[in-house]
């Protein structure tokens, strides 16, 4: 063998080794890059992949079973993440509340408590008749004659309720309710533009005031 042949063989070996190292490194990188997308889909990409993706490797970690995949994106995967409103909170309270009682799931507890507090605020607005009366008396949205006229009408309606509770009146309760609604709408229409906070507070106290009017014992305290 000549010297040139030896150097050619040595360079050939080096080329082969370099090629092998390159192939291994590329394969390693491709292997890693192939793993990452399969690890990521369980959070967000899963709903997009099921129709076209491979059924064996990517999906099982997300669900645990490969069978119900067509139903997952619609029912489980996306809606709870996307919608976090009161309706979904109500759905969670009906479905996921039992695990939450055991203390494992934090989000359902937070959602249900927030929903309960919101519904509590909606159902029972604070009623302070004296404060509302004072605010109505001091509002600038009504003139003196209008305030006095409305006070006369309120007094008339209270007299009707008093007679109703004492069984001295033949006016049925639905008729009293109609008059109450009409009077309240009249007041609201007059103060809505000039005193919106008072109008909002009166409107939110509508049912609470009606409850006081209908209950003889509460009505006696007015």
């Amino acid at each position: 063998m000549s010297v040139s042949a030896r150097t050619f063989a040595a360079s050939r070996r080096q080329c082969c080794i370099a090629a092998g190292v390159m192939i291994m490194s590329i394969a390693g990188c491709s292997g890693r890059s192939g793993i990452r997308p399969t690890a990521a889909p369980p959070v967000a990409v899963v709903p997009a992949t099921p129709p076209a993706g491979a059924p064996s490797a990517a999906t099982p970690p997300a669900t645990g079973t490969g069978v119900p995949r067509p139903a997952e994106p619609a029912s489980i995967a996306n809606p709870p993440l996307a919608r976090d409103t009161t309706s979904t909170a109500a759905q969670r309270s009906t479905t996921v509340v039992k695990p939450a009682k055991s203390g494992t799931g934090k989000p359902p507890i937070a959602a249900s408590s927030a929903g309960n507090s919101a519904t509590a605020q909606l159902e029972t607005p604070p009623l302070n008749l004296a404060a509302l009366t004072l605010r109505l008396r001091n509002t600038r949205a009504l003139g003196v004659f209008t305030k006095l006229s409305l006070k006369n009408e309120v007094d008339d309606l209270l007299d009707e309720f008093r007679a109703y509770h004492h069984h001295e009146s033949t006016t049925p309760l639905p008729e009293l309710r109609r008059r109450y609604d009409a009077l309240l709408l009249d007041v609201l229409s007059r103060i809505r533009s000039d005193d919106p906070p008072l109008a909002a507070d009166i409107a939110s106290s509508r049912e609470a005031i009606w409850a006081v009017l209908c209950d003889p014992q509460k009505f006696a305290t007015i």
């Binding site: 600038r140 949205a141 009504l142 003139g143 003196v144 004659f145 209008t146 000039d194």
Partner: peptide, 9 residues
């Protein structure tokens, strides 16, 4: 009072 007498009447 922000309401004029005319409006009040």
């Amino acid at each position: 009072n922000s309401v004029s007498m005319g409006d009040d009447l």
